[in-house]
């Protein structure tokens, strides 16, 4: 059966809305009190797995899910061996470097050599600072990275920014953007090549839906 890995959190609602528009209804995940981790759509054609953001590419890379919806930031961070199929255009935000507003730094190159940068996205951060040829120490944190500069543990952070409200409320400002990110439809490469469980039919419908949401 066609299996789709969906990410908990920010992207879930819109992912479910989009899939519904192509005939796959997984809205049971959104019902209050729903504790199920996998559900079938009412027509019995597909199954959805509800997993952590960073686990979506893993299920797709191992072929347990033929399709997945996940942010580009996660794909950049993990570099998984999956097919990047459609830019779904929602969930837009940016990966940014931010520092304390009252710090002297206004560009990443002004950061002190061997300074510390806190991030959940260590791979992206390392790649970025290597491309600047700026040696910094990347500190991995699981969340609330804004506390890094606030407490003085790090000079800067690399994190996802949607509205910028969290940064503002914590007295931080962005000084550079690494890349823009949106939700992506990814596929297990072998399923993509062999059109397993008709993945291409759903890929084409999702692509059409994203291109012209008014239609269908």
């Amino acid at each position: 059966m066609l299996t789709i890995a969906l990410a908990k959190g920010e992207l879930l609602k819109e992912s479910i809305r989009l899939l519904k528009s192509v005939g796959l209804d997984f809205s049971a995940f959104l019902e209050p009190g729903c504790r199920q981790l996998q559900i079938e759509d009412p027509t019995g054609t597909a199954r959805a797995l509800l997993v952590r953001n960073g686990d979506v590419p893993v299920y797709v890379e191992y072929g347990q899910a033929q399709l997945g919806i996940v942010g580009y930031d996660v794909l950049r961070e993990q570099n998984p061996n999956v097919a990047h199929v459609v830019d779904l255009k929602f969930g837009g935000c940016r990966m940014s470097v931010a520092v304390k507003k009252d710090s002297p730094y206004r560009s990443p190159l002004e950061l002190p050599m061997h300074g510390r940068v806190a991030s959940k996205f260590v791979h992206c951060a390392r790649e970025y600072f290597e491309s600047l040829d700026l040696p910094v120490e990347i500190v991995y944190l699981h969340g609330s990275v804004e506390l890094g500069p606030i407490t003085g543990m790090s000079e800067a952070i690399v994190d996802l920014v949607a509205t910028g409200n969290t940064l503002r409320e914590n007295g931080l400002i962005e000084i550079d953007t690494l890349f823009q990110t949106t939700a992506r439809l990814i596929a297990y490469p072998l399923s993509y090549r062999l059109n397993t469980d008709n993945v291409h039919e759903y890929i084409d419908r999702l692509r059409a839906q994203v291109a012209e949401p008014a239609k269908a």
Partner: peptide, 8 residues
Amino acid sequence: HLDRIALE
């Protein structure tokens, strides 16, 4: 790598 988005 079947990266359609990169080609686009």
